[in-house]
Design a protein around this nucleic acid. Structure first.
Lengths: 214, 214, 214, 214
DNA sequence: AATGAATGAGAGTTCATTCAT
DNA sequence: AATGAATGAACTCTCATTCAT
C-alpha cells in the first residue's frame, strides 16, 4: 500500500529511534525496507535528504494544529494543548531531539532548516504565552522574564523525554512524566483564575493518576 | 610543560567541543597533539578511555565545591552557587552535554559511569532545594512538585547552553544567558524573603546588565 | 568469465597457500583480485567468511565421492580411493591443513564447523576400515587398535604433505610421497589376500616408479 | 631466583602455549614477566630470538637422552624410550608443533635451524629403528618401507597431541592418548620376540589402564 | 523504478621495534 | 640492567555514494 518512498521514511524513523540516525547506515535502511541501496538513492539524493524529509514531516504535523488555533477566542485549551498535544508526535520523532546537536554539526542543510524552524517555534511559544497572559491565565511578567520563560519552555519540551529515557526504558511512562515536567514547570506562572479552573485541575488529576500508584 | 597524556586530554576536549567526540578520530587527535597514533594508544587503550578520563575530570571539578558546602549554616549563597558556579566548567566540557545521548549509546562503559553520576546529581539537587526550603528561601511544595522541580532543574542546567549555542556563536554571551535561564526558572519558586534579599537582587542586576544593552 | 566472488575465493586460496591465511590481509586479496577492499567486504562480511566459504567448498568436493560409495559390493577399490582420491583437492586446499591449529584459535565460527566435520571424518574412516576388514582385506584387530588406526590415519593424511613441503618445494613430488606415506602406513594391516591382489601390487609399483629413479 | 632472561623464556613458553606465539605480543610477555618492553629487547633483539632460544632449549632436552644411548648393547628399552620419553617435554613445548608451519613462514632464521634439526631427527629415528631391527625387535623391511616408517613416525609424533587437543581440553589425557597412537602405530612392525617380551606387554597394559575405564 | 556491483576514504586498533635516559 | 615513551606501518572493517544496466 505504502509507496517505496514512504516505506523508506517510516523505516528510517524506526531505525533512527532505535539506534540513532548517525549510527544507521543507508545499507541498513535499504535492507530493512527490502530494497537495494541504489534504489534508496533513486528516491533520496543522500542521507541528509532523508533526514530533512523526516524533519519536514515532523514540522508539518506540529504546525498543522498550531496554525488552526483561533487566537480571538478566550481559550483556556491553549495551555492544555501546550501540555498534551504533540506528545505522540514527539515520541515518534524523538531521535530528532535526542541527537539534535550532532545532527546540526553533521548536516549543514538540515541545520539551516532547523534554525528557521527554531525561530518559528520561539515566536509561536511567545505568542501563545502572551495570549494566555492577555486572558489572565498566566501572570504578567517583564519582557526578560517572558523571554526566558520561552527559552526554558523550549528546552524542557525538547529534552525531557531524553532525560526519562536515560533513567528507564518504558517509553510510555516516560512520555507521561515528560508531560508532568511541562505541567509543573508552567504551574508557578499560572494565575489563580487558572488554578481554579476545572480543566486545569482535571489535567493535574489525570496526569498524576499513574504516577501516584507507584 | 604539560605531559603527553595531559596534552591528549586537553586536545581531545578542544576537538570534541569543536566537532563532537563522535566526529573526531583518534588519528585527528594524535595529529593535533603532534604524536603518532601508536603513542596515543600507549596512553589510552581506546577512545572510550579518553572520554571516560575527561568525564572523570569533569565530575571531580564539579563535585569538589559541592562536597565542601556546609549545610548546617543558614546559607543563602547556595542558590547563587546553583546559578553561577561551574559555569566555566560547563563551558569547557560542553560537548559532554551536547552529544550526551549518542555517547551513551556508543560507549557502554561511559554509560554506566554516567548513570551513577546522574543519580548523584539528582540527590544533590534535591538536598540543595530542600535546604533552601527549610531556611525559607524557596516556597514549600508537594513531593511531586519537588520531584519535577529537580528533573526540570537538571534538564535546563544540562541543555540550555546547547540551546543558545545553536542560536549564536558567542560562547561567553551564551553562558550568561544560560545563567539567566536558570535564574528565571527558579525565580517563581522563591519566597518573598529571597526576593527581598539584597544578594538575590544583585544577582539579577549583574546578570541582566549585558543583556540590557543589546 | 569468473564472477568477482569466485575470483576472491580463488585468489584467497592461492594467497593462503603461498603465505598462509593469517599472513594474508584482506587488502592484499583485494589488490590481487584487482578490486577495492570495500568491494571485497560487499561479498564477504569478514575474513572468516572467506575462510569458511573455502572450507565448505573443500568439504563438498571431499564428500561428493565418499557419499557415492556403494558399501554393499565387495570392493577392493576402497583402499585405492583411500590412498589416491582427493590428492588434488588436498593440494589445492593445503593451507587448511598447514595452519589448522591457528585457524581454530583465531576463527571461532570456523572452529565449530571444523569440529563437526572432524567427527564426520572419523566416522567415515572407521566405516571404511570396518568394511575392508569385513571383506578380508584388512586384518582383524581389537577395538582399541582400530580406534588408534583411525586417529593415526587422520593424522598422517592431514599432515604428511606439510612434512614433505617442509623438506622440498616440489609440490607434485611431495604429493606422491604423501601417498606413499599412506600406503606404507596401511600396508602392515593388509591381509595376504590384499597383498596378493594385483590391484594393490599395481598401486605400489605405480607409486614407487618415480621414487625409485632418484 | 630465576634471572630475567629465564623468566622471559618461561613466560613466553606459557603464553605461546595458551594463545600461540603468533597471537602473543612482546608487550604481553613483558607485562606478564613484570618488566618493560624495552628491557625485554635488551635481552632479545627481536621476537624471533625468543622463539629460537626456546627452540634451542627444546632441542637440548630432547637430544640429551638420545645422545647418551649406547647402541652397542642389546637394548629393548629403546622402544620404550621412543614411546614414553620426551612426553613431558613435548607437552611443555607443544606450541612448537601446533603452529610449526606458520612459524616457519614467519621466521626465516627459525626455519633454517628447524630444517637442520629435522634432518637430525630423521637420522636419529632411522638409526634407532635400524638398531631395533638388527636386534630382532622390529621386523625386517625394504629400504622404502623403512623410509616411510621414519617419516610416518615423525608425523605422528609431531602431530598427535594437536589432534587430541582439538577434540578435548584435558591435556594430561590427551598426552596419554598420544602415546597410545605411537604404540599402536609401531605395533604391527614388532617381531614376535618383541610381543612376547614382558616389558612391551607392560607398556600396553600401563597405557590402556585409564583408557579402559572410560 | 530498481538492481547490485564498485569505490575510496577513513575509522579504531595493534604491534614489533627503537631509543634516550 | 632497566624504563617507558615514541614510531609508523599494517590490520580489519564501515560507510556514503555512484553508476552501468
Amino acid at each position: 500500500m505504502a509507496t517505496t518512498k514512504e516505506k523508506i521514511i517510516e523505516t528510517s524513523i524506526k531505525l533512527f529511534n532505535e539506534k540513532a540516525c548517525l549510527n544507521t547506515s543507508t545499507r541498513h535502511i535499504a535492507d530493512e525496507v527490502g530494497i537495494s541501496v541504489g534504489n534508496l538513492y533513486y528516491y533520496f539524493k543522500n542521507k541528509e535528504e532523508i533526514l530533512i524529509e523526516i524533519f519536514i514531516n515532523y514540522i508539518n504535523i506540529i504546525f498543522k494544529e498550531i496554525t488552526s488555533i483561533d487566537y480571538e477566542k478566550d481559550e483556556m485549551f491553549l495551555l492544555k494543548d501546550f501540555l498534551l498535544n504533540n506528545l505522540e508526535t514527539d515520541i515518534k520523532y524523538r531521535f530528532l531531539h535526542f541527537e539534535l546537536n550532532l545532527l546540526l554539526i553533521t548536516f549543514p542543510k538540515f541545520k539551516k532548516i532547523k534554525e528557521e524552524q527554531l525561530q518559528n517555534e520561539i515566536k509561536i511559544i511567545k505568542k501563545l504565552l502572551n495570549h494566555q497572559i492577555s486572558y489572565g491565565y498566566i501572570k504578567k511578567m517583564t519582557e526578560y522574564e517572558l523571554d526566558f520563560l520561552v527559552s526554558n519552555s523550549w528546552i524542557i519540551a525538547t529534552n525531557n523525554l531524553a532525560y526519562w529515557n536515560f533513567l528507564s526504558n518504558d517509553l510510555f511512562e516516560n512520555a507521561k512524566k515528560s508531560t508532568l515536567n511541562m505541567y509543573y514547570f508552567i504551574k508557578p506562572y499560572l494565575t489563580q483564575k487558572s488554578l481554579d479552573d476545572k480543566r486545569i485541575k482535571d489535567i493535574e488529576t489525570f496526569l498524576l493518576k499513574d504516577y501516584n500508584e507507584k
